[in-house]
């Protein structure tokens, strides 16, 4: 359940940013979560509901940009999409990969008031 720690960090970042912007409420929060980031969506959802109570994020609309995994095979130098870290290159079947996208875990923006 590391998702709870993740949600707590999001609350902390959002609260700091809101206060820094001299605002008193957060209407919207935009997150970026990669498919390979290690966040399990159901757990995240569960943790979110409990953790945002009585915080500035309580009534915020949450938008999640899901980023698909993208890797380069370092033997063939071709890019291909992956859903798991152990996916093989579709050309050579190798596992010598550079993960280019999918590890994202970010607070992108807020709409504050």
């Amino acid at each position: 359940m590391h998702e709870l720690s993740i949600v707590m960090s999001i609350i902390e970042i959002a609260t700091t940013q809101m206060e820094g912007a001299d605002a008193s409420e957060i209407e919207e929060i935009e997150l970026e979560i990669g498919a390979l980031s290690g966040v399990e969506e159901n757990s995240f959802e569960f943790a979110w509901k409990q953790a945002v109570r009585n915080t500035p994020l309580q009534n915020a609309v949450r938008k999640i940009n899901h980023i698909e995994g993208l890797a380069t095979c370092l033997d063939c130098m071709i890019d291909f999409s992956i859903t798991q870290l152990y996916d093989a290159c579709p050309v050579c079947g190798g596992h010598f990969l550079n993960i280019k996208k999918g590890k994202e875990l970010k607070v992108k923006s807020l709409v504050v008031n």
Binding site: Q17, E27, K108, S109, V111, V112
Partner: peptide, 8 residues
């Protein structure tokens, strides 16, 4: 109402 770019 305004947007704060966080990128964190």
């Amino acid at each position: 109402k305004r947007i704060v770019d966080v990128e964190q």
